[in-house]
């Protein structure tokens, strides 16, 4: 049977036809504009007046103390921001998914699933504003006093020591629905028989999770991890909405996305003259880091098959 299928296996050109429509859209509206913008990383000046400077922008990022201080700071903050998503968002995603795939509680499960997903659908403009309101002691002090949690009335978003954590957690709160959904989908695909068998063996919930569920959803864990990595290294909106494009206070929430925006797109307030070349160089380095992080993982899963 297998051989008969192989005999009918079409040639590469046939499959190539399937990719043509997507390739056309992708090349024209994404690959070309992106590659052309990467080219800008070799230039300095504004669009109306660009001069070729070779690798000067890259040198600046690493060796010009004014630029590199900001860059290294943003890079470290981005790593922290990413780790929060990995550890909080994705772990919560798995926990919720496991709890919400318990059999016999379909109705409850679907209600909770919807609730947990709702923040994902909201514009960050709104969630950012709401959390700024809630996390601000000026407004929340009375409420916190009333429920006996006065100690929580702190300017979380205004202190350099806590701002990045607060912003990261708000972002996790907003996006946890997506990994949860992906894990729910994967967990539901696990055959009932395996659970039956485990139940008969007397395995407890914990053992079932570690020994059966987690190994079986490993591919999805991989996908989620890669998406988290890629998305958070390009994150921008949540910091912009909650801590301005500067990553206030004192650049403590400045991540690569906001640095890129400030340098390459908007220019520093209030002058607002961007440096597209330097911005492109920042994005290019991020791109190379992501490629370096993602490709080995993908190749590894590929060779395993």
């Amino acid at each position: 049977m297998h051989s008969s299928y192989n005999r009918l296996e079409p040639r590469g050109f046939y499959w190539f036809l399937y990719t043509i429509p997507a390739l056309l859209v992708y090349i024209f509206f994404m690959a070309y504009p992106l590659l052309d913008s990467i080219r800008l990383s070799m230039y300095s000046g504004t669009y109306s007046n660009m001069t070729f400077v070779g690798l000067e922008n890259f040198r600046k990022i690493f060796f010009d103390s004014e630029v590199s201080t900001r860059y290294v700071n943003a890079l470290l903050n981005t790593v922290v921001f990413f780790l929060y998503h990995m550890l909080v968002q994705n772990v919560l995603g798995i926990i919720f998914a496991v709890l919400l795939t318990q059999r016999g509680k379909e109705r409850r499960n679907s209600i909770y699933q919807t609730i947990i997903f709702i923040p994902t659908t909201l514009a960050i403009l709104v969630t950012g504003y709401l959390w700024k309101l809630i996390l601000n002691p000026v407004w929340s002090k009375n409420l916190l006093d009333a429920i006996g949690l006065s100690a929580l009335a702190q300017p979380w978003l205004g202190k350099e020591s806590t701002a990045l954590t607060a912003v990261s957690l708000v972002s996790c709160w907003q996006w946890v629905g997506i990994p949860m959904m992906m894990f729910v989908a994967a967990l539901r695909n696990i055959s009932e028989d395996i659970f039956e068998a485990a139940n008969i063996e007397g395995a407890n919930r914990w053992q079932v999770f570690w020994r059966i569920q987690l190994p079986l959803i490993k591919p999805v864990v991989g996908i989620v991890a890669i998406l988290t990595f890629v998305n958070n290294f390009n994150a921008f909106d949540v910091v912009f909405a909650m801590e301005t494009a500067n990553g206030a206070p004192g650049y403590s929430t400045d991540i690569l996305g906001t640095l890129f925006y400030r340098v390459g797109i908007a220019g520093q307030h209030p002058i607002g003259i961007p440096n597209p070349g330097l911005g492109a160089a920042i994005a290019t380095i991020t791109f190379l880091m992501l490629i370096a992080g993602v490709i080995p993982v993908l190749l590894k899963t590929r060779t395993k098959e």
């Binding site: 994404m30 998406l227 890629v230 290294f233 890129f260 991020t286 791109f287 992501l290």
Partner: peptide, 8 residues
């Protein structure tokens, strides 16, 4: 996925 499309 790995480049901010804003750059373009």
């Amino acid at each position: 996925m790995m480049l901010p499309i804003r750059i373009a």
